[in-house]
Computed example of a mutant assay.
Amino acid sequence: MGGNQSIQRVGENETDYKKVVESEEFQSLLRTKKKFIVPISIFFFCFYLALPLLTSYTKILHTPAVGSITWAWLFAFAQFIMTWTLCILYSKKATSFDEKSDKILEKLEKGGSYK
C-alpha cells in the first residue's frame, strides 16, 4: 500500500486535526504529559547509568553490604524495583491522560469548535 494514505481532505463529517492540535485543551494535555514524563525519564536514565559508572570508576559499590553481597548487587536489584515502580506510576497516570483525551473527543462529537 502507498505511503500517502495519511493525507486526507477535511470534509463535512471529518475532523480538522490541525485545529484540535492547536486547541488549548490539547495543548494542556501535552504540557501535563510532558511535566510527568520528562522528569521520570531523566531520573530513570540517571539511575540506570549510575550503576555502570559507579562500578567502573569508583570503589563505592564494591564494599560488602550484607555478608558477601556488595552494594553493586543491591543497586542492580534496586533498578528492577525502580523500573516496576515507574511502570506502575505511569500506568496509573496514563488513566488521567486518557480521561483528558476522552473529554476532547467528547467535545468533538458534541459539535465542539474543532470542526
Rank of each mutant, 00 (worst) to 15 (best):
G112P: 02
A78V: 03
I7Y: 02
W71A: 04
I42N: 08
W84E: 15
N4E: 15
E14M: 14
A50M: 07
Q8R: 08
Q79L: 15
L53E: 08
E25C: 00
K18P: 11
G11V: 04
N4R: 13
E106Q: 01
F26D: 00
Y90R: 05
V21P: 04
D98L: 14
G11E: 13
C87W: 11
T85P: 08
K35D: 05
K107V: 06
L29S: 05
K33L: 06
R9H: 15
L53N: 07
L61I: 04
K35C: 02
F44D: 06
Y48I: 13
T83N: 14
T32C: 05
G112H: 06
E25M: 00
P64D: 00
V66Y: 03
P52N: 07
F44P: 06
Q8W: 08
T70M: 11
S96M: 12
I7P: 04
F75N: 03
Q8E: 10
G111T: 00
A78R: 02
F47T: 06
F80A: 14
L29E: 00
K103Q: 09
F47D: 07
E109D: 02
K110D: 03
F75S: 00
P64G: 05
M82P: 00
A76T: 05
K59Q: 02
G3E: 12
F80M: 14
T95Q: 07
K18T: 15
K107D: 12
L54H: 01
F43Q: 11
Y114G: 01
L108R: 09
L74E: 01
K93R: 09
C87I: 11
T70W: 06
I88C: 08
